[in-house]
Nucleic acid binder design. Structure first.
Lengths: 212, 212
DNA sequence: ATACGTTTCAAACGTTTGTTTTGGGGGCTT
DNA sequence: AAGCCCCCAAAACAAACGTTTGAAACGTAT
């Protein structure tokens, strides 16, 4: 990243700053000055700040979704072998596709996702649904196959519960690990946290339905 | 809320606008004009925008935590009866304390919590830990008693997983219910969503530990 | 070498932001 | 009635924001 082009330097810097402080709290001046480019470069190359935000997400979501799509296609060819654990592992593997080199990019990715959801500016929600809604539906359909005892609608809700737990955890991974280290004198690796999260999610998705 | 004092009118309006659009995206002018008060009133009564944000949280968290503290004290007198379900129900009951009249205030409360967590870089994190860390530790200790097979550190992580699922779900309650309605032609009440969430959480907290 | 499209740069634009100032009413006490 | 204190209102403030501008610098093909 030492002497990359202007566009990439902007994207590299923007995704870090956005993840650290949020979208509205990160000014174009902060991005461009830290990236070592001119202030006008953002509007020249991307058109606007909104477009820059979307470009940052595209750089994450395109490899993530294409990888996920491919893996889901593989699974569809052998429907009997589809389990919750395999589907969740598929997500994990897809997330690896976004970390080109640095493993910390996965954390940034989820941190941004959390921001996108909570700040939910109108344009981002539309952007997600239009560009990546397809893959998400595909995943949802497969998950419904994996847990035939759970009605599709219940699967829908539980996926969102799981999504919340995941985004929340991975977006706050470092602070949480620090608390764990100080309270229990145990240093967990991100991978170990991930394992714990996955068993929690599997347990939740398979849980007994509430008495209606 | 028709002709309340200036301070309350500001707080009432601010909490709604903050929940809708976030902290940075909500200007004091938007708050004061909608509240029907003068722009300078915020700085006069609260001192700054940061102080207003904290005041909004205090109005939610003080009744919530004092109610929660009281209920936890009751539970401590009879440790044998403490189960996950009872603890989660305790949280639910405490949340009811924040909705003075309007039931939708619970959603606002969690929406704000989600915002606070995702944007939490400086003053809010400190504010939470200093003012409400005590009650949280107390809850954590009780939960560890309720699931003796799960080591305390695992409880710690699972509570945060559950916290993420809860905040994520309740902060996006209305959009999620809309999707559910359009995709499954089923209209769930917030209470029904809550029931589903609770069984998901109980299943996750009780799930089998990952093979280490 | 000249001309051309692309990229970079410093500077300025017009808005909007949070905050401060100033001054003028009520309602109290003395 | 005078003084005091709390509250409100209009205006102005400085700073920061995203965006635009016009010219300079660049590489490249003619």
């Amino acid at each position: 990243m030492a002497q990359a082009g202007t566009v990439d330097r902007i994207l590299d810097t923007a995704e870090v700053l956005f993840a650290q402080k949020g979208f509205a709290e990160t000014s174009l001046r902060a991005i461009t000055s830290k990236a070592g480019v001119n202030l006008a470069a953002v509007n020249y190359h991307f058109g606007s700040k909104e477009a820059l935000i979307q470009a940052v997400f595209e750089r994450f979501l395109n490899p993530f979704c294409s990888r996920l799509d491919g893996l889901l296609a593989e699974l569809e060819s052998d429907p009997d072998s589809v389990t919750i654990e395999r589907l969740l592992a598929t997500l994990s593997q897809s997330a690896v596709a976004v970390q080109r080199g640095e493993p910390q990019r996965v954390a940034i990715f989820f941190r941004l996702s959390g921001l996108a959801y909570s700040q939910a500016q109108g344009h981002l929600r539309r952007f997600f649904r239009e560009h990546y809604g397809e893959v998400f539906s595909r995943f949802l359909r497969q998950l419904a196959v994996a847990v035939p005892d759970v009605p599709p609608m219940e699967v829908f809700w539980r996926v969102h519960f799981a999504l919340g737990a995941t985004i929340f955890t991975l977006s706050g991974m470092d602070p949480l690990r620090a608390i764990c280290r100080s309270d229990f004198a145990v240093t967990l690796s991100p991978q170990q946290v991930n394992d714990r999260l996955l068993s929690f999610l599997a347990g939740g998705i398979r849980a007994a339905l509430p008495a209606s």
